[in-house]
């Protein structure tokens, strides 16, 4: 069971991460297209890129999927740690803390976009910044829980 939970946790985190990579990519392209159109002299890049509407849709859909899968991954990871009775060790793990923080930020930006309070350039820029934080999360020190 613990092995299953471990692989389930890993699979969900990887799938969520993939969704968030797509979201960050779409957000970068959105910002690029948007700045091209704002410049009033859109060049060849603008012609090659999809419309803002399409990029926004790809961004929002992949963000939604990524956030849900990534968060589920965290929850399954907690269940796995609980199963191994190693919950205490997680409390001081920088990577785990950063993961929680990043997921919370992702949920925040998702909620703002979902409620249509804001959209467009600021949301796209927010997604890119949180993605950078996510990358830092993966690079942060990790104590690790291993099978005994």
């Amino acid at each position: 069971m613990t092995r299953f939970l471990f692989w389930f946790h890993t699979g969900l985190v990887v799938a969520g991460f993939a969704g968030l990579i797509v979201a960050a990519g779409a957000a970068i392209l959105y910002l690029l297209q948007s700045s091209q159109l704002k410049s009033r002299h859109p060049g060849k890049i603008s012609l090659e890129l999809p419309s803002l509407e399409r990029l926004d849709r790809i961004h929002f859909e992949s963000l939604s999927l990524g956030v849900v899968l990534f968060s589920l991954g965290i929850v399954v990871g907690l269940l796995w740690a609980k199963k191994l009775s190693r919950m205490n060790e997680l409390a001081g793990d920088p990577r785990v803390i950063l993961s929680f923080f990043t997921a919370a930020l992702y949920w925040g930006i998702w909620a703002v976009r979902f409620s249509a309070l804001r959209r467009g350039q600021k949301i796209a820029a927010g997604t890119v910044l949180i993605f950078i934080l996510l990358l830092l999360t993966f690079l942060s020190p990790h104590r690790g829980i291993y099978f005994s």
């Binding site: 297209q33 159109l37 859109p42 603008s46 012609l47 890129l49 999809p50 419309s51 803002l52 509407e53 399409r54």
Partner: peptide, 21 residues
Amino acid sequence: GARKVSVASIAVDLAEKIFGN
């Protein structure tokens, strides 16, 4: 024929780059 040359069609192209359709 890749790039439009009339003001009206350029405006439409730009609108399509923003709204898609």
